[in-house]
Design a protein around this nucleic acid. Structure first.
Length: 843
RNA sequence: GCCCUCGUGGUGGAAUUGGUAGACACAAAGGACUUAAAAUCCUUGCCCUUUUUGGGAGUGCCGGUUCAAGUCCGGCCGAGGGCACCA
């Protein structure tokens, strides 16, 4: 028998798919399925993470197509971003050339995988045909007050004179210059996502098809807190400090006020030397975020106080390094007895610790180094004594509102989205600053504002800013001089609406065609990495809400079902000096690991594949040896798709063997002859059951289990071939059903075998095999017989066979009888067609 | 620190949601075929035993609920992830 050689076969079918536009989206508007995987950043080559992501999506898309859905399965490129600029600097290659080259490479790699993508829908975010519409969306947000400018901090490299992205700051230093990064305030554009805080939070519970984990992460990110604001009157010219608290019930335990270092109240003493020093250290420490929680709680005692709103007691005001100006009101009252952080602060500065909540009314509570934060009753608190915490909160808020010094208030952790980037390779913001100081939009007819091609990366800073002419323009209305916005948009903006654009990527006048979008949206299945659980997915939800009215969208949520796939992992290798080594450069010998020059290599634990640790396997290298089908099959088997998968050589070899076995099965069927008769054959029943199980597994994303069932399926077919009791036609029919099913996973071998066995190449036009309910009804069952819950025997029974009959059959079994002879039967538990448990007095 | 998830053979993992634990695969050992290798196929896989269609232990640890627990409840231990001065 010939071996199956995947490479020429796969090439043949790839060309055939392409030539015949097999995966083109249909125009008729019947039941639809929009299957989308997160689009890739064109970094150079596809990696195993892409292979897993797109293969997974392809299984779903193929499955739905065979089940009669009109499927939209597009692909595009998240093509703006910093690495293109870095490559430009390093290789003296224009970001656009670098990007386009990468897109072309990766596109051919994806095609080689046999993905059922409609390439006519391809889009790229760095294409002006795409970002023109993003500028229209920005203009729209501008008109609807969803975008505004405010001062905000950036990472500033004082040596390179440039703004750094967070990932360019390493241990607080600039990645190129090594200079300590400073915080610098710049005026930047913000999208008003917080306007939708409540809606984004509340509709999470309607997202039934999202993983609970992701919803929880978003919920925590939005971070809703219910509490109240209280105005405290100070002894400085009667000014007021507004604080936010979730624990107004502890107001009588307040022993200090703490405000943020950049709180407006600090204006009156901002030039005091002691305060300046304090503020500098406090703000400096904020920059290294990981250090924050370890930081010591430091306070600066001001010479001012506030008056308690109910007791009129004087309470000192501190400036504290742990109070953030951009959360709540930038000020709190500290109640040390019932907040751990306040307690630490109070101990350090010797402030009063007055317990006002007790778990037990009859006993006094004593606070040492643990704040009491549990439920209880209020004490030491005048008119709210003896109330529960909840009652006290309500009472205090009511009193505050009566006295007009406070009100209930909901605060969110979610902040508005800063979208300005001081970068070249991004979508230009369609804004002009007119010489009379007015900020105006570039009119829609003048869009897109395109990026200049001739740029100089040798000068530090933003090339758009440095460009000799690009930013100078004129106001089209007044003819006044104007300067263009030189910031570009965060690339997360690009990916916040691309799923809408895919519905009508050729639409010229609008970001998307309303009818098409309303037909295809929402995305029925979205698949991607869990690392996007918060930002990308939240931003996309925000965009959908924000665009809804203006563009007449029917949906409020973009992604009906979300699946977050796990990472592809591989062991890491290092030399003694700690240099990372590619797995392909490592040779295993007698349990040890070596380089080609015999240098010893240390094997580390398995981690997610990453360029920096070099524990990567290039899909190209693998496909060249085993073919695409093998890679697809392996990456789908073994591990549940939402968990990490261990890449292994033996695993891919196993997959390759399976592909070979599919081929051998075809060759055996080709020469098959029936030689004997057999009355009873469970084959069709078990096949039908397998089809049902595989179908269920795919629908539930248990792809690894579906794969396991398909091993059984093929083994069963081969068993039947050996038995030689079926008609050839019968074997072929089951094999054809099998091929339809595996074509969803591994299209090339499936199409090849189908063509060989049927003489036609119309596998893609087939229907998913029907499950025959009549065959699902079994008439034979294996009944488990237990004594006191322990399995003792298995009995064959007919459908619905009754308890007495099963019981008497059990007694006929020797060891059951032996055991029961010594015991008295107390009762029997019987479950039809399944189980009989005989319970005795002797447990 | 807070929140979440997960602990099953040498390994990746199944188990219809409380009803036969270990499907399927990888790796290993033994065998068949072969001059040989590769490929392929078969067998084995905890302990005891009268070698069986027998018994026992067994899903991180301790306890509980139940006729019955990998699955439910309580406590502990361990691994991974998210948030991180959020008032």
């Amino acid at each position: 028998m010939d071996n199956y050689n995947p490479l020429p076969v796969e090439k043949k079918w790839q060309e055939s798919f392409e030539k015949n536009k097999v995966f083109k989206t249909k125009s008729e508007k019947n039941k639809k399925f929009y299957c989308l995987e997160m689009f890739p950043y064109p970094s150079g080559n596809i990696h195993m993470g892409h292979v897993r992501n797109y293969t997974l999506g392809d299984v779903i898309a193929n499955f739905k197509r065979l089940n009669g859905y009109n499927v939209l399965h597009p692909m595009g490129w998240d093509a703006f971003g910093l690495p293109a600029e870095n490559a430009a600097i390093q290789n003296n290659l224009h970001p656009q050339e670098w990007t386009l080259k990468n897109i072309s490479t990766m596109k051919s790699q994806l095609k080689r995988l046999g993905l059922s993508i409609d390439w006519d829908k391809e889009l790229s975010t760095c294409d002006e045909k795409y970002y023109k519409h993003q500028q229209i969306i920005f203009s729209n947000f501008f008109k609807n007050n969803l975008v505004y400018k405010k001062e905000s901090y950036v990472n500033w490299d004082p040596v390179d004179n440039t703004v750094l992205a967070n990932e360019q700051v390493i241990d607080g230093k600039g990645w190129r210059s090594g200079a300590t990064v400073e915080r610098k305030k710049l005026s930047q554009w913000f999208l008003n996502i917080t306007k939708y805080s409540d809606e984004l939070l509340n509709s999470l519970e309607n997202l039934k098809g999202w993983p609970e984990k992701v919803k929880l992460m978003q919920k925590n990110w939005i971070g809703k807190s219910e509490g109240c604001e209280i105005d405290f009157t100070t002894d400085y010219k009667d000014t007021k400090i507004k604080i936010f608290t979730t624990r107004p019930d502890t107001i009588f335990g307040a022993s200090f006020i703490a405000i943020a270092p950049d709180h407006p109240f600090t204006e009156s003493f901002k030039d005091e030397k002691n305060f300046k020093d304090f503020k500098n250290t406090a703000l400096k420490n904020i920059r290294i975020e990981s250090e924050l929680s370890k930081n010591e709680k430091l306070g600066f005692k001001t010479s001012f106080s506030v008056f308690h709103p109910f007791s009129n007691k004087k309470i000192p005001i501190y400036v504290a390094n742990f109070i953030l100006m951009d959360y709540g009101t930038g000020a709190i009252f500290g109640c040390p007895a019932h907040d751990q952080r306040d307690l630490e602060f109070a101990i350090k500065y010797d402030l009063e610790i007055l317990p006002v909540v007790t778990p037990d009314k009859s006993k006094a509570i004593n606070i040492k180094d643990q704040a009491y934060t549990e439920d209880g009753y209020i004490v030491n608190s005048e008119f709210i004594n003896d109330l529960t915490i909840e009652e006290a909160k309500r009472k205090i808020i009511q009193k505050l509102e009566e006295k007009k010094i406070g009100k209930s208030k909901i605060t969110y952790r979610l902040k508005d989205w800063g979208v300005s980037r001081q970068r070249y390779w991004g979508c230009p913001i369609p804004i002009m600053y007119r010489e009379d100081g007015k900020i105006i939009l570039v009119p829609e007819k003048d869009l897109p504002v395109t990026l200049p091609k001739d740029i100089d990366f040798n000068k530090p800073g933003n090339p758009l800013e440095n460009h000799p002419t690009w930013k100078y323009t004129k106001c089209p209305e007044t003819g006044m001089k104007a300067i263009r916005e030189t910031d570009t948009l965060d690339t997360f903006v690009d990916s916040s609406w691309y799923f809408l654009r895919f519905c009508s990527p050729q639409e010229n006048n609008k970001p998307f065609n309303t009818d098409e979008a309303n037909y295809w949206m929402p995305v029925d299945q979205y698949i991607g990495g869990v690392e996007h659980a918060i930002l990308h997915l939240l931003y996309s939800r925000f965009f959908t809400l924000a665009l809804k009215n203006e563009f007449k969208l029917k949906v409020s949520e973009p992604f009906e079902n979300l699946f977050t796939q796990g990472m592809v992992c591989h062991p890491t290798f290092k030399t003694k000096e700690g240099k990372w080594i590619f797995p392909k450069d490592v040779i295993e010998e007698n349990g040890g690991f070596f380089l080609k020059n015999k240098e010893k290599v240390l094997k580390g634990d398995s981690q997610a594949m990453s360029k920096s640790k070099k524990n990567i396997i290039d899909p190209d290298d693998i496909i060249k040896i085993y073919g695409s089908d093998s890679v697809r099959w392996f990456i789908l088997s073994d591990s549940p798709p939402d968990r990490g998968i261990q890449w292994s050589d033996s695993g891919i070899q196993g997959a390759f063997k399976y592909i070979q076995k599919i081929w051998r099965t075809y060759e055996k069927i080709k020469i098959y002859k029936k030689v004997k008769d057999e009355k009873e054959n469970k084959f069709f029943v078990s096949t039908n059951l397998l089809i049902k199980e595989v179908t269920d597994c795919i629908e539930k994303f248990h792809i690894n289990v579906a794969v396991a069932k398909l091993y059984v399926f093929l083994n069963n077919i081969n068993e039947q071939i050996e038995m030689k009791t079926l008609e050839k036609e019968e074997i072929i029919n089951v094999y054809k059903q099998y091929l339809i099913i595996i074509s969803v996973f591994i299209p090339y071998i499936a199409n090849e075998c189908w063509q060989k066995i049927t003489g036609k190449d119309d596998l893609v036009n087939q229907e998913w095999p029907k499950i025959k309910d009549s065959l699902l009804k079994k008439d034979n069952f294996e009944i488990v017989v237990q004594i006191d819950g322990k399995k003792r025997a298995i009995i064959n029974a007919t459908d619905n066979e009754n308890e007495d009959s099963i019981f008497s059959k059990s007694l006929a079994i020797k060891n059951i009888k032996v055991i029961l002879d010594e015991k008295i039967i107390v009762k029997k538990i019987f479950i039809k067609n399944k189980l009989l448990n005989i319970v005795t007095n002797d447990k």
